[in-house]
Design a protein around this nucleic acid. Structure first.
Length: 484
RNA sequence: CGGGGUGUAGCGCAGCUUGGCAGCGCGCUUCGUUCGGGACGAAGAGGCCGCCGGUUCAAAUCCGGCCACCCCGACCA
């Protein structure tokens, strides 16, 4: 391949290869020794920490408390909810030995914690006064995946899982929607993604849930990615684990439970939502470095430039802007420009003798939507904190707008099968569907597209199924797409 | 599980057809010169050629077996 060794595979040539190039070259991740495992490197982990802090704040602000449950779960727990075990059995890691001896009962490494938390909830809840019980945990989970992909599907991943118990179905449903709303807010406000909240069709439901909701996001190859999910369990787990309470009138009642999760997959989603052929593009809200200062100059100039860079960085830090000075002496400015573009830093400031003399810094944006040729711009140093705060806010908003425009530009409403097939090859399709599983399966076989969600905001509409012509279900259009 | 591919220096690869001193580029170390879009020179360091066995005077190379990882589908956050 004639391509420069130092750049990445273009998206248009092979999106999948592009993704791999970027996550490694941007220094987000490395491969672990075990199939499907990953080492999240400091730069990638910082993104996770920022997302985590944002989401954790929202979770706590809505009355949930963090707790931590064990990694190891008795195998028998998994088997108590029939659909749940059936759904997860193929993915389980099982521990059969400990202390050099075979265990009497095998332990599974949690693929998710409904069962062990359900068991504990049953113990902790006895009265209607104990409800609602609003728990969350930050943890790692393990699932044996057939086809791993960095961040998107690894055998071990990090997430947050909320687990709540409520007296009534209405309360639990409200909680399910509340959690979905938190995810949508994080996705849009922090990650600048254009997610669509909706409900999963029955075939796409979580194992053991009565209703599953999702936020679906569009990646830059037109595929869909589930970026967060929230489940209404009804009384399924309460029945399996005996999560009951005594009501005000003294009767024994089953709780209604929920669970909801968002994962390190979000990092992959960020990459595929905003990235381009120069590499990663990070929204300021989640960028480890929002501004990178590149000092330019050697010899006599170096000292003056580097101290000015340090002063500038300190000033910006004080203003709450995550700033980094790239003072690596052995590397040329040009190398650094490319490096930080690869790593997705929103704004770069060049500081050399010319700027020093003029009392300015040369500002360069990682991406300029609708003005791809926008030039570098000199900004006065004394106004840098205010100007950069504004620039970062504008950059964040620009990315969100760009993602929304991209989603809308790649979404079509189809009323015929040819339209459907063509639409789903390049993006999302809104179509009426009969709701039958066999029909969904047929669509998948023919186009590889699946029902992503029934958008909450969809307009009421009835008509014939896009595939089989039977009467539509759900009362509105369904999003179909190829998915990750 | 099906299909394809790859295992040789930290990374990317060549060498294998036709057996004969283990190579190249990048990176790394030291010194010097450089620094406004991926700098240059000189001198260095770095190897269980995936593993096990076989053939041979001699195996990275030929033969047999095994293992691992990657990519494309089915499963999934």
């Amino acid at each position: 391949m004639a391509r420069d060794e130092r750049s990445v595979t273009p998206q248009s040539e092979d999106f999948s290869a592009w993704y791999n190039d970027v996550v490694f070259r941007a220094d987000l991740v490395d491969r672990g020794p075990v199939r499907g495992s990953m080492v999240i490197k400091p730069y990638g982990y910082r993104i996770w920490e920022l997302l985590q802090a944002d989401l954790d704040g929202r979770i706590k602000a809505t009355g949930h408390q963090n707790a931590y449950f064990p990694l190891l779960i008795p195998q028998s727990y998994m088997e108590r909810e029939a659909e749940h075990v059936e759904g997860f059995a193929p993915e389980l890691f099982t521990v059969t030995h400990a202390g050099g001896k075979e265990l009497e009962e095998p332990l599974v490494i949690r693929p998710t914690s409904e069962t062990i938390i359900g068991e504990m909830m049953a113990k902790w809840i006895s009265s209607h006064r104990d409800l609602p019980l609003l728990l969350n945990q930050w943890a790692n989970v393990l699932r044996w995946e057939m086809r791993p992909r960095m961040f998107l599907r690894t055998s071990e991943f990090l997430w947050q899982e909320g687990h709540t118990a409520h007296p009534t179905a209405a309360d639990a449903t409200a909680e399910t929607m509340l959690a979905l709303g938190l995810y949508q807010d994080v996705a849009v406000e922090a990650a600048a993604m254009a997610s669509v909240p909706g409900e999963k069709t029955p075939g796409e439901r979580f194992a053991g849930a009565e209703r599953t909701f999702t936020i679906e996001s569009m990646m830059r190859d037109g595929r869909a990615l589930q970026a967060g999910t929230s489940h209404f369990m009804g009384t399924n787990f309460a029945t399996a684990f005996g999560i009951t309470y005594t009501s005000e009138s003294g009767t024994a009642e089953l709780c209604h439970t929920t669970s909801w999760g968002m994962t390190t997959r979000m990092i992959g989603a960020l990459v595929m939502t905003h990235g381009d052929d120069k590499g990663l593009v990070l929204p300021p809200a989640l960028a480890p470095y929002q501004v990178v200062v590149v000092p330019i100059g050697r010899g006599e100039q170096a000292a003056a430039v580097s101290s000015a860079a340090a002063v500038l960085a300190a000033t910006l830090q004080r203003a709450g802007i995550r700033t980094h000075v790239d003072d690596r002496p052995q590397l040329s400015p040009g190398f650094k420009f490319n490096d930080w573009e690869m790593r997705g830093v929103p704004i770069r400031l060049e500081l050399g003798p010319r700027e020093l003399a003029a009392g300015t810094a040369l500002l360069s944006r990682r991406l300029s939507y609708r003005q791809p040729d926008a030039a570098k711009e000199a900004i006065p140093l004394e106004r840098a904190p205010d100007l950069l705060a504004a620039e970062l806010a504008a950059f964040q908003a620009m990315l969100a707008q760009r993602a929304a425009d991209f989603r809308d530009d790649h979404t079509v409403a189809a009323n015929s099968w040819p339209e459907f097939a063509a639409g789903v090859a390049v993006g999302w399709v809104l179509a009426l569907h009969c709701g039958e599983q066999a029909c969904e399966d047929e669509i998948k076989t023919e186009t590889t597209a699946t029902a992503r969600c029934i958008p909450l905001a969809g307009e009421p509409e009835q008509g014939p199924c896009i595939r089989c012509g039977k009467a539509s279900a759900y009362g509105k259009r369904v999003i179909f797409a190829r998915a990750y």
